[in-house]
């Protein structure tokens, strides 16, 4: 689906943000990208819809070199929800904000209506349909930007820091959304510092540090590697920590980290 082969990227001011990236993301995968501030995560995902073109190497989406397509064309397949909602909300009403992209892609009117209703409903924004996006709270704005992307149903959904500023319920709902995408075979790429959000999704984990991919594999394996996580300044999910400690004290009653949750709930009940 998306393939990076030997990609380097240097910013205009000479900062090298990506070094020798080789990465293949297949259809239907859930990928979490983690790593310290400035590791190159955002730079990486900006290559996926052609906003940035590699300084060296090739990025392809469905086999097509991103240099041969405009971002607007690539976006039909790859939807990126950016971190800062203030960088994209411009319409007079939520309704118009959501259908903006659908009109750009030339969807038929009927489909636009359907998708609009779905998006408003799904993100709990119906009561604001005719209001200005500017009156929304920070978290609601963020949800609106997600609605704007998901409305056109891209094959690949990229979320850059989706949990920032979201309350606990919204985070859980977001996790549900990601799981739903997984079940319908969408590809999801999540950039996040929020390991507690990532962990239950049990994604493929890509760990970045100083422009390189330093770890790539199932989260359940990589999240146990303390040394690796520390080198990229990623904290271990609490569940994994507890598991490790119980194991060290030789009292672990479970073999798998995911069983820990059950163990703990049982313990609380007792």
């Amino acid at each position: 689906m998306i393939n990076f082969s030997n990609v380097d990227f240097t910013h205009q001011n000479g900062v090298v943000a990506l070094r020798a990236i080789n990465l293949t993301i297949d259809r239907g995968e859930i990928v979490a990208v983690v790593g310290e501030n400035g590791a190159g995560k955002t730079t990486l995902v900006r290559h996926m819809n052609g906003l940035l073109k590699p300084s060296r190497g090739i990025v392809t989406v469905d086999g097509v070199d991103t240099r041969r397509r405009s971002t607007a064309q690539l976006s039909r397949k790859v939807g990126i929800a950016f971190q800062n909602p203030d960088h994209q909300l411009f319409s007079d009403t939520l309704e118009n904000e959501i259908i903006f992209a659908l009109k750009n892609f030339g969807f038929p009117e009927e489909t636009i209506r359907q998708r609009l209703d779905w998006a408003l409903n799904f993100f709990g924004l119906e009561q604001y349909t005719k209001d200005s996006p500017l009156i929304l709270s920070g978290g609601e704005k963020k949800r609106l930007t997600l609605a704007c992307i998901l409305a056109w149903d891209p094959d690949v959904i990229i979320l850059d820091e989706p949990t920032v500023g979201q309350d606990a319920i919204q985070k859980e709902r977001l996790a549900e959304v990601v799981k739903m995408f997984k079940s319908v075979g969408k590809t999801v790429v999540i950039v996040s510092h929020d390991v507690e959000f990532i962990w239950p999704l049990q994604p493929r984990l890509v760990i970045m540090s100083a422009g390189r991919v330093v770890g790539d594999g199932p989260a359940r394996d990589l999240m146990r590697d303390r040394g690796l996580l520390e080198s990229a300044r990623v904290t271990q999910p609490q569940l994994v920590q507890i598991h490790a400690e119980l194991k060290a004290s030789n009292s672990h009653p479970f073999v798998d980290t995911l069983e820990a949750r059950k163990y703990i709930t049982d313990m609380v009940k007792r």
Binding site: N49, S70, A72, N84, H87, Q88, A101, W152
Partner: peptide, 19 residues
Amino acid sequence: LDAFQIMDAQKSRGLELEK
């Protein structure tokens, strides 16, 4: 910088700026 980020965000929503 703001302007560039906004342009990026809108291009990612299918806005063709060059055409």
